[in-house]
């Protein structure tokens, strides 16, 4: 099939960007969306044009590198990462609009590449269990109820892609942050730092300039890993609990 890709071109963070149309012929249904962009880029290079920059790596939907807004939807029409989106979702003659994640804390570096280092800084603010290598007790010494382990796992599957922020009208990083808070605060290993973790991570989130949650729920609509909206409620509860607790206040 033949399609037109209307894509955001921005040479650098400080220069203005604009949408540019590119025709792509010979698009196969089984191509992934990124393979279609590869084909377009090969063509651009040979035509002496600057190829489109976009982040990608594993192309298996797990590294979280890729992400773009396709026809107004973060990661496009299927609830998966854009590397797992295939051209069979589109029709011959379609014009497909492709834009980078747009949110204040995600500076555009070039074309579709944005700076998501703010996510790493949120994790630095307590998204871990403080246990040095070698200090661990036997793995079987603490049992974890299967339901807790499963819910912790569900939250831990977040790939840090940023779609939740891109989709949120407030540019909030609540789903991302709450997934980590929920993962660790549910487990026995996460208990000693439970209050400090949520207080510091929420603070970091605010400091980075992310917005607040107003229960719109767009984040969960686009999350390729299905992080539940309940996690945000859970983080709010954890936060209130920590504010009230004496341990939290000392942090």
């Amino acid at each position: 099939m033949k399609i037109t890709v209307r894509v955001w071109r921005q040479p650098s963070p400080d220069e203005a960007g604009r949408m540019v149309d590119y025709p792509v012929d010979d698009v196969a249904e089984d191509m992934s969306f990124l393979e279609m962009l590869d084909v377009l880029n090969e063509q651009l290079i040979l035509d002496d044009e600057d190829p489109i920059s976009f982040d990608h790596d594993c192309r298996e939907g797990i590294c979280g590198s890729c992400g773009m807004v396709i026809n107004g939807q973060a990661h496009g029409p299927v609830k998966t990462t854009v590397c797992q989106l295939h051209m069979r979702e589109f029709r011959d003659g379609d014009t497909i609009e492709v834009e980078p994640w747009r949110a204040g804390p995600f500076k555009i570096l070039k074309d579709l590449v944005v700076d998501r280092s703010s996510f790493d800084r949120i994790i630095q603010a307590g998204g871990y269990v403080s246990v040095n290598t070698g200090a661990a007790p036997d793995a079987a010494s603490v049992s974890v109820p299967k339901a807790d382990a499963d819910l912790a796992f569900e939250n831990a599957t977040c790939i840090s892609c940023g779609a939740c922020v891109a989709a949120c009208p407030n540019g909030a990083a609540m789903l991302f942050t709450s997934a980590k808070v929920t993962h660790l605060n549910l487990l026995p290993q996460g208990q000693p730092e439970r209050e400090n973790r949520v207080l510091r991570m929420v603070q970091a989130m605010d400091d980075e300039g992310f917005g607040g949650c107003t229960n719109v729920g767009q984040c969960t609509q686009v999350c390729p890993k299905g992080i539940p909206f309940d996690s945000i409620m859970n983080m709010n509860r954890e936060y209130l609990r920590a504010v009230k607790s004496s341990r939290g206040n000392q942090g």
Binding site: Y128, V129, V131, A135
Partner: peptide
């Protein structure tokens, strides 16, 4: 080590 880190 991994269990202590909270690997689910």
């Amino acid at each position: 080590q991994c269990v202590a880190q909270g690997v689910p």
